[in-house]
Every structure is written in structure tokens, then in C-alpha cells.
């Protein structure tokens, strides 16, 4: 469940963003569309607690993350949020499985290899677990980053331009995969993009 009210953010006096309120019930998805520079990433980072809002509240599963202290917020994020970035990020020195083990560790959870294997299996990259992430193909990296996003069973998956560098076929694959993984973990999926192709794939849309 995600609910925002009266969110605004200001980088400086000139660039202030005001965002429409968002309300998503459990397991509901949303695509936020808008041109570059309109504050899409800012909104996403406000939802993630990576930026501190000037005004407004962000309720995620009844927790107002704008009221959390720094350490609590880190912990909350680690346990409740998954991220998919435009370019997949990994810890370069670690293998794929170690990257996932690291995320379990950072969230303060016990390492659970069985679960990691299940997730990788679901995404069809189980045989790549010992590979360094830069040795994976682009498509595999895309899947691996989805594995990163869902490994800790997040309540909300935030995706920032996940498809903008992909062709039509892969674009559809990724969104389908994201939606299915989100529903498999019962998470809200929030995608921000300027990619108009996604319009047809989400029921809930918000135009900034």
C-alpha cells in the first residue's frame, strides 16, 4: 500500500516540484509518465526515502517514511523496497549470488541460498549464479537486476526507466517479467518512464 499526500521537493528556490497525490492499494501497479526534467526521478527518490521531501507524507504499508530516522529509514528501505534502474547496478567485485547474499545481509536477514536459487530459477539465470555480473549478457543483467529487486520480498518495487534502452520485444519482456515478479511477491510496482510504449501495459497511469 502506498499513499502520498501533498508531496513537494525543492532543489533550490527556482526548481520546486509539486506532485499529485498517489494512492495504491496492495499489489496495485502504477506507471508514472512524463518528459525529462519534470521530476519523475525526484518523485521516485521521494517514494524511496532517498530524498527528503519539503512538504508532504509518504505512507508505505502505514509507515510514514518521512518521519523515520536515518538508520530506521535505511533499514526500512532494505526490507521493504526493491529497485530497478535504467542501467543495472551491481557490486562489481562480487559474483551474482554474492550480490544477492549481500542484499540479504544489508537488510539484516539471514543468508538464504535456497531462496536465491529459487529466484534465479524463476528468472531463468540460475546457471549464472557464480558469474561476475559484468560477465553476463545485457538481457541477463536486466534479469539479474530484477532478482536483486525482489530478493528481500519487498512491499514496493520502484523502477526508474527500466525499458528506455530496450527494443520493443525486450521492452515487453521486461515489463511482463516485472509485473509477474511483483505480483508473485505481492508488491506494488511503480514504474517511472518517458517511454510511451508502457502506457498500454499498465492500468494505472499518472501523467506528470
Amino acid at each position: 500500500m502506498i499513499q502520498t499526500t501533498g508531496l513537494s521537493y525543492a532543489y533550490d528556490a527556482q526548481a520546486e516540484f509539486r506532485f499529485p497525490d498517489i494512492h495504491l492499494a496492495d499489489a496495485e501497479n502504477l506507471v508514472i509518465l512524463g518528459e525529462s526534467g519534470i521530476g519523475k526521478t525526484t518523485l521516485l527518490h521521494l517514494l524511496a526515502g532517498l530524498l527528503v521531501a519539503k512538504t508532504g507524507k509518504v505512507l508505505i504499508n502505514n509507515t510514514d517514511i518521512t518521519q523515520l530516522g536515518a538508520r530506521e529509514l535505511d533499514h526500512f528501505r532494505g526490507n521493504n523496497m526493491g529497485f530497478v534502474f535504467q542501467k543495472p547496478y551491481f557490486v562489481k567485485s562480487l559474483s551474482l549470488i554474492d550480490n544477492l547474499l549481500l542484499l540479504q545481509y544489508l537488510a539484516g536477514r539471514k543468508s538464504d541460498q535456497t531462496k536465491i536459487k529459487q529466484v534465479l530459477d524463476r528468472l531463468g539465470i540460475k546457471d549464472k549464479e557464480r558469474k561476475k555480473t559484468y560477465q553476463l549478457s545485457q538481457g541477463e543483467q536486466q534479469r539479474a537486476s530484477i532478482a536483486m529487486a525482489i530478493i528481500n520480498d519487498p512491499k514496493i518495487i520502484l523502477a526508474d526507466e527500466p525499458t528506455s534502452s530496450l527494443d520493443d520485444k525486450n521492452c515487453l519482456n521486461v515489463t511482463t517479467l516485472l509485473k509477474s515478479q511483483a505480483s508473485a511477491t505481492g508488491a506494488n510496482l511503480v514504474v517511472i518512464t518517458h517511454d510511451q510504449r508502457l502506457k498500454t501495459q499498465f492500468e494505472n497511469q499518472l501523467q506528470l
Binding site: 536515518a70 535505511d74 523496497m81 529497485f83 547496478y89 544489508l106
Partner: peptide, 18 residues
């Protein structure tokens, strides 16, 4: 070199101290 990695770790729950 690792700045994006560190940001990634932070977004997945790592604290500044870590």
C-alpha cells in the same frame, strides 16, 4: 569507481557507517 555501488548498497539498506 565504486560510488554507484555504494549508492546501490545504501538504497538496499546499508547505513552510512557501514
Amino acid at each position: 569507481e565504486r560510488q554507484p555501488e555504494l549508492a546501490l548498497m545504501r538504497s538496499y539498506g546499508a547505513s552510512r557507517k557501514q
